[in-house]
Design a protein around this nucleic acid. Structure first.
Lengths: 167, 167
DNA sequence: AGGGTCGGTCCGGATATCCAACGCAGTAGT
DNA sequence: ACTACTGCGTTGGATATCCGGACCGACCCT
């Protein structure tokens, strides 16, 4: 790859975007924290799983904690940063439940007693975040949007306007 | 891989979990909807990008719309299902901004005027969703949790209890 | 001793990714 | 008409990653 847009999404995916990484997180959140169990539940090749665990530990998403000396055995726990990814998994699961049309294999319940329905809201106003309700401000020279919006007139701005409404 | 836990997260990742797929979505949400522009902004190999676009269209996340006959040219637009993935990207970006320690290359603003801070809440009670505030109910025989919670006593239930608190 | 568990590593073959080059259709310039 | 250029891919061959299964060391049990 040549040059890509500087972007936190891409940076995040460099940590958790490889195959199985998010499934490792899923298991960890379920409380499954040992190598053998993960192999079983995820169905990943052992060497790949080992590589993913190394990466997640090095990135500070998981930490390796000994649960037994002699024989030396470790389990993997989520760090604070790791726990911050739980909501990503909730949204992915919810999307699958809604759009991939099977009966959900796992159902969640919130502590308030209601069946689980996650909504992403604005911390300030509390409104749900919807397409079109946000504006992006590009901070890096040259990586704004260069025209080509579908059916709009060739609006005034020419070289990479530094902001744009999403949707 | 042998057998893996039946799971909507895995199903969703089968659609958007391959390299570059979510970056395609990022560009589409920014309004970048043409092949050439995506190649530039994502920095992906052209053949891979073509494959990802095919997959996303076939999965109903994007739709191919002609913006010119003669020469026949298409652009890729998000479907309803595609728009539903926008929040996933917001969370990934937010995680990167918080934990990967650089100055965010793109900053968002909500329509309420506040700078963007997305919070995942329960649709019923409105409370923020936190680790430990949810219970998972496993619907499929044999895929509950089989013991091994870190420091708890070997609690009563033996074979795959069908529910568990997350965290 | 023999068998089982746990957490990996190692190997060879299959698959996916990468990159540069090419094809093709139409448009713009001279 | 000839050349150049753009947009959107496809093709071929080198490289990287993934896969399944075998293997290993350390320990426990009988």
């Amino acid at each position: 790859m040549t040059k890509a847009r500087p972007c936190s999404i891409a940076d995040t995916l460099a940590v958790v975007g490889e195959k199985y990484s998010l499934l490792v997180l899923r298991e960890v959140f379920f409380g499954v924290r040992r190598f053998e169990s993960m192999v079983r539940n995820i169905g990943a090749p052992r060497d790949i799983l080992a590589a993913r665990l190394r990466r997640l530990v090095e990135a500070g998403v998981l930490e390796k904690v000994a649960y037994s000396d002699r024989p030396r055995r470790y389990e993997y726990r989520p760090t604070e940063a790791g726990l911050d990814l739980q909501n990503v998994l909730h949204l992915l699961r919810q999307w699958g439940d809604r759009h991939l049309a099977e009966t959900p294999p796992v159902v969640f319940e919130h502590s308030c007693g209601a069946s689980f329905d996650a909504v992403v809201t604005c911390a300030s106003c509390g409104e749900a975040i919807r397409p079109g309700s946000q504006t992006a401000h590009f901070q890096v020279e040259g990586w704004g949007l260069a025209g080509e919006r579908p059916a709009d007139a060739a609006a005034g701005a020419q070289s990479s306007p530094s902001q744009a409404v999403l949707g």
